[in-house]
């Protein structure tokens, strides 16, 4: 019995294109991963395809995002909190901002407390106008609910950035990604309450994927800065 058309794999056990893509994206369950890895250990054909796709996925982390994708407002039913970050001026590559909620204080002592020496600047939008534009975080004061922030993290080009926020007595990962050439993070922060805001920003070197970045932060291998705004 023969196939009507040739199929793109030498044997039925070989991985399909969909399986290879999911594997390269790290989007496979533990049990399935073990099966794939066992096959990859003995199949040069599939191993080469996986290697090539992983290489391309890594390269795409620096790919320019098409303008059409960046020029539209995108609400999401999951959170209903997606918004487009559009800072004044043309110096910032516009990116979609996954909003995460953080609470910021309007404390009497104002100012920002911090640990670590990673350079961070903010652009702050209030009521549609720019309040601060690419301003060092140390100089930011008097934020209030409704303010929208965007972070610029100054670090070498081969680093990964991890941002965590303090929520309900635990650190929650808000963002993990390779640092972009303009250093702006493709996420925004919206101030939602008067409570204190705590953010941790990590810069990790020698990292090739999200999993590794997460591990490095927990192992204390990344440069770290903690902000209380």
């Amino acid at each position: 019995m023969t196939e009507l058309f040739a199929r793109p794999k030498p044997s039925r056990d070989c991985l399909s294109a969909w399986q290879i893509s999911r594997f390269a994206l790290g989007d496979v369950a533990e049990r399935e991963r073990a099966v794939f890895q066992e096959h990859l250990g003995r199949c040069e054909h599939c191993a080469a395809r996986v290697q090539e796709e992983v290489r391309q996925v890594d390269a795409a982390k620096y790919e320019r995002i098409p303008g059409e994708l960046l020029a539209t407002h995108t609400p999401s039913s999951k959170t209903n909190l997606l918004w487009l970050w559009k800072p004044a001026g043309a110096m910032v590559a516009v990116g979609f901002a996954a909003v995460f909620l953080v609470a910021l204080p309007q404390r009497e002592d104002s100012g920002t407390r911090m640990k670590g020496d990673i350079g961070i600047s903010l652009t702050v939008m209030r009521d549609g106008s720019t309040l601060f534009n690419d301003t060092p975080v140390e100089q930011i004061q008097s934020l209030r609910p409704g303010d929208q922030l965007r972070l610029r993290v100054h670090g070498p080009s081969d680093t990964w950035v991890v941002v965590q926020g303090w929520e309900k007595s635990t650190w929650v990962e808000y963002y993990v990604g390779a640092i972009s050439t303009d250093r702006w993070l493709p996420i925004g922060v919206e101030v939602t309450s008067e409570r204190e805001t705590r953010l941790k920003v990590f810069l990790c070197t020698g990292v090739s994927d999200k999993y590794m970045a997460g591990r490095f932060t927990s192992e204390g291998k990344c440069q770290e800065r903690e902000l209380e705004l």
Binding site: P8, A17, S21, A24, L25, D27, E53, Q56, V57, A59, A60, K61, Y62, E63, I65, P66, L69, L70, T74, S76, K78, T79, L82, G95, F96, A97, A98, G177, P186, I187
Partner: peptide, 25 residues
């Protein structure tokens, strides 16, 4: 099964798969 909320991240992480998929067809 992963939901990727941020469009920029969704693009950069999945463009290889999507483009390759379209190219094969």
């Amino acid at each position: 099964m992963t939901f990727v909320r941020d469009m920029g991240e969704a693009y950069r992480s999945h463009i290889t798969m999507v483009r390759g998929r379209a190219l094969r067809i």
